[in-house]
Simulated scan of single mutants.
Amino acid sequence: MAAHRRSRQRPVGGTTARAAVTLVLAGAATTAGSGGAAHAAPRPAPAGAEVDRLYREAEVATEKYNGAEEKADSARERLRDLQDETARAQARLNKAREALGTVAAAQYRDGGLDPALRLMLSDDPDAYLDGAALTERAGSRHHAELGRVRAQLREIEKLRGAARVEVKTLTTRRAELGRHKRTITEKLSAARQALARMSPEERARITGGSDRAARSAGGTARDAALSQAPNARAAQAVAYAHRKLGSPYVWGATGPDAFDCSGLVLAAYRSAGVSLPRTTYAQIDAGRRVSRSELLPGDLVFFYSGISHVGLYIGDGQMIHAPNPSAPVRVAPVDQMPFAGATRVV
């Protein structure tokens, strides 16, 4: 989701291809100049390849961040539920204690004389016998209330134990979020510095130039994609993605004005009433797997062996995706990055 725009490998004659050509030409020149005998000293990787690598690493960290955040949200929700249930159990306990106290006080007030002596002194023996039966029933009530109090104390202790577990889980997730955030920040900062060292022409090739070109995919191409979508939900997701062309990439964002890669497809399908998981790792299993030859508009297309980048297929070998912080949401060819698989949301 994050910096994952692996955008580095995306351009149509992308950075990876340029890097490969550069290395091949460099090797050929070395061989020619030395009669094939000498070995050239290792050359530093092209600046574009460095930026590509940094963005990929930031993207991997972003997806891990998104996953940890999702788990932290779940832990927070479970903790809130446990706290609410504990409060309700405490209220029930207080009520049971109050009832127990009332019964105990009544027994204390009435339990001072020996039952036989109280019968002898009573002005109304029949009334006394009725009262004795009532006292016996009160004793049974006392035991029942005591049993409820004990059960509620056990329930509260169990709830508090579960809450302690969730607090520990949440603490762990927060530490994990901090680690991933630091990694993302470091990688993106290094990528910005590498871009700053490049010439304007090379930087334009890396960032893809003007995003007006991306918007040109509208009109006829968009209508064709909508008509070829396998269902209404996929068509709505594609339409949403088209409307977001040119939106900035922000790691961890899910719209409506900024996105990371998995955040864009999540928001696109959310607009169609479909709930997708937050991360690329989970999104690839959110539907039916399809082969590259079966792709239809609305399918999710995934890249890299780590499944760290995702785009929304729109037909004709193209996708809409959120590349990286240096490039906005745009149209790009599916073959600009290493294809890892595709899923059709059903």
Rank of each mutant, 00 (worst) to 15 (best):
M198Q: 13
Q193V: 08
R174C: 10
T169K: 11
K181N: 13
A175L: 08
A190C: 05
K168E: 04
R182K: 09
R203T: 14
A204K: 09
R179S: 13
L188W: 03
L170N: 13
L195S: 07
Q193I: 07
A191V: 09
E202C: 00
A190K: 15
P200I: 00
R197A: 06
A175R: 13
R197P: 00
G178W: 07
R192Y: 07
K168V: 03
L177H: 06
G178D: 14
R182E: 14
T171W: 00
Q193S: 12
K168Q: 02
S189C: 03
T183Y: 02
M198W: 08
L195R: 08
E186T: 15
P200Q: 10
V167T: 11
E186H: 12
A191Y: 09
K181V: 11
E201A: 07
L188Y: 10
L177G: 04
K168T: 02
L170G: 15
E201M: 03
M198V: 08
Q193R: 13
E201W: 04
K181M: 12
R192M: 04
S189M: 10
I184P: 02
I184E: 04
L195N: 01
S199K: 07
K187Q: 09
R173G: 03
S189Q: 15
P200F: 03
E202I: 05
E201P: 00
E186C: 04
G178M: 08
T183K: 14
R182P: 02
A175W: 10
K187H: 09
R197S: 09
E201H: 11
H180A: 12
V167L: 11
T172V: 14
R179P: 01
A175S: 11
E186P: 05
K181L: 12
K187P: 07
R173L: 07
H180I: 10
T172E: 13
T172K: 15
R182Y: 02
R174P: 09
E202D: 15
I184D: 06
T169L: 02
A196G: 07
R179L: 12
A196C: 01
R203D: 14
E176I: 12
T183H: 05
T171L: 06
A191N: 12
A204I: 06
A196H: 02
A175H: 10
H180R: 10
S199T: 15
L188P: 05
R203S: 13
V167G: 05
R197H: 02
I184S: 01
T172A: 15
L177I: 03
A175D: 14
V167I: 02
A190N: 15
M198G: 10
R179D: 11
L188R: 04
A196R: 13
R192V: 01
A204V: 09
L188F: 03
L170I: 08
A175C: 08
T185W: 02
H180G: 06
K168L: 01
A190W: 05
R197M: 02
T185Q: 11
E201R: 14
T185F: 05
K187F: 01
T169M: 00
K168I: 05
M198A: 04
A204C: 02
M198S: 11
E201K: 10
T171P: 07
T172D: 15
L177T: 06
S199Y: 07
M198K: 04
T172N: 11
M198D: 03
